[in-house]
């Protein structure tokens, strides 16, 4: 059985664990711990500390593993470990939280330097928030043309599928 890997990354509370839960065919393996920092616990009660893990079986010969990284920069050693030999990277960003765009830009640069794998940015729309558009985000983060930005709802299976399909198209284009 051959294993391939896609990495889902993004700043704290971007919806990475939800993204994986939505698409995985197995019960996701989640490594969450209670948030201890005040600025984090006000947003959510727990955070990924090592990785999230989901799986999509393609056929008898091959399987896709989906790894979710921790969001905080202090866990960036896991970003390096998880991105090694990845087919591609999904950078998930909460479209309603402008305060994390700078951090997301740093993460984008980190992964662009660490890996040659294609990257797509998925702009996750949480409800009841003022959303940033793809065009605005592109400007703020100075995203190069080669990295597509797609709107996404991490709780919606069709939307998550759409992000993964865009990434796979990009992988195919890259190898052409």
């Amino acid at each position: 059985m051959k294993h391939y890997k896609i990495v889902v990354t993004g700043p704290f509370a971007a919806g990475k664990t939800t993204f994986i839960k939505t698409i995985t065919e197995i019960a996701p393996v989640i490594t969450e711990a209670p948030t201890t920092r005040e600025e984090e616990s006000s947003v959510k009660n727990s955070t990924t500390v090592a990785m999230d893990f989901g799986r999509i079986t393609v056929d008898d010969e091959s399987v896709l593993h989906i790894f979710g990284t921790p969001g905080q920069f202090r866990f960036n050693y896991m970003w390096s470990i998880l991105s090694k030999d990845a087919l591609g990277v999904v950078l998930l960003i909460d479209s309603g939280d402008k305060s994390i765009f700078e951090e997301a830009k740093d993460m984008l640069n980190f992964f662009r330097v660490k890996t040659d794998a294609p990257i797509v940015i998925a702009l996750n729309h949480f409800n009841e928030k003022e959303h940033t558009t793809k065009e605005e985000l592109c400007k703020i983060m100075m995203v190069p043309d080669s990295i597509p930005i797609i709107d996404c709802d991490a709780t919606n299976k069709e939307s998550v599928k759409n992000v993964l399909l865009k990434l796979l198209e990009l992988i195919l284009e890259n190898e052409a």
């Binding site: 051959k2 391939y4 698409i23 065919e25 999509i56 079986t57 393609v58 056929d59 091959s62 896709l64 087919l87 299976k157 599928k161 993964l164 399909l165 796979l168 198209e169 992988i171 195919l172 190898e175």
Partner: peptide, 18 residues
């Protein structure tokens, strides 16, 4: 070094059917 194109095409098909 590239992943086999066949695999990506099969994966695309699999995800579409999910």
């Amino acid at each position: 070094k590239a992943p086999p194109k066949n695999f990506i095409l099969r994966l695309i098909d699999r995800i579409r059917r999910l």
